[in-house]
Amino acid sequence: MNYDASLWLTFILIGLATLLPRASFIVLGQRASLPEAVQKALRYAPAAALAAIVVPDVVLVNGAPELFNPKLGAAIAAVLAVTLSRNPWLPFVAGMAVLWGLR
């Protein structure tokens, strides 16, 4: 497949659509602010967002939920590793080992 110069324009558009939301409030700083209640609610943004990204990744197989799948087994192993040990590498080792083992 071949692309012409417009591909770089497309990259710049996608780049702006990524940079502007990221930079918005950080760059505007004191000139723009969100109400206190919104600020408080924002503390839940990381937990909600990361769960919204990771849960489908773990329970969906080819777009449909499947409770007994190797990825869910691997996720449980990783969560147990974080809970029971302080070793930062163990969740990765345990998770990938279970993933490969169950396949």
Binding site: P21, F25, I26, V38, A45
Partner: peptide, 15 residues
Amino acid sequence: LVVNLRFLIFSAALA
């Protein structure tokens, strides 16, 4: 833009 909307929330929290 849609997949990046979450960054608005993150950016506001970091401002």
